[in-house]
Computed example of a mutant assay.
Amino acid sequence: MIIKLTKPCTFEGGEYKELNCDFDRLIGDDFIKAESEARLMGDRNMMLESSKLYQACVVAKAAKVPVDLIKSLPGKDFNRVTVEAQNFLLG
């Protein structure tokens, strides 16, 4: 799934106009790593599927980008990509 950003995002010298989020390619280990990442960043949410931080970690895995890029997106884009992750997680 290609998610076009409302405006280009510059991160670590690269410019991103869209994210290619392939949720279907993720495997169980990706979700375990995303959970570990979110927990290390302080997420204590009992239901991770509703956690924006966990969703950001999942999007990062699906798009093969650092989670810090996802966290640096403008609010509208951040909300859009995390809602896509939540929709996938809650299926």
Rank of each mutant, 00 (worst) to 15 (best):
M41G: 03
R80F: 07
Q55D: 03
A63I: 07
A62W: 03
L40G: 06
C9K: 05
F23A: 08
A56T: 10
K17N: 14
M47I: 15
E84F: 03
L19C: 02
I2C: 11
Y16F: 04
L40W: 06
G28S: 15
S36N: 11
R80M: 11
T82C: 09
I2Q: 11
M47P: 05
A34W: 14
A62K: 10
G14P: 01
I2E: 15
D30T: 07
L89W: 02
R80D: 06
R80W: 03
Q55A: 07
I27N: 12
D29F: 09
G91W: 15
I2A: 08
R44Y: 11
A60H: 02
Y16Q: 00
L26N: 07
K52G: 11
R44I: 04
K71S: 00
L73H: 00
T6V: 03
L90Y: 14
I32G: 10
S72F: 02
R80L: 15
D24C: 09
D22A: 10
C9W: 02
G13P: 00
K71V: 00
P74S: 04
A56G: 05
D30N: 15
E84H: 11
L53I: 12
I27L: 06
P66T: 02
C9F: 03
N20S: 13
T6I: 04
D30S: 15
S50G: 13
A85R: 03
R39W: 10
F78C: 12
I70L: 00
K33V: 10
S36R: 12
R39N: 04
V65H: 02
R39K: 15
F11Q: 01
D30H: 13
D30E: 13
V83H: 08
C21R: 01
T10A: 00
E84Y: 12
S72L: 02
M1H: 09
A56D: 10
N79P: 04
Y54D: 12
L5A: 01
G91R: 15
D29H: 04
M46Q: 15
S36G: 11
K71N: 03
P74K: 06
A38Q: 12
A56C: 08
A62L: 08
E84G: 03
G28E: 14
F23H: 04
R39E: 08
A60S: 05
T10L: 01
N45G: 05
G28D: 11
F78Q: 05
D68E: 14
D68W: 00
I32W: 05
G13F: 00
Y54W: 08
M1C: 05
V59Q: 02
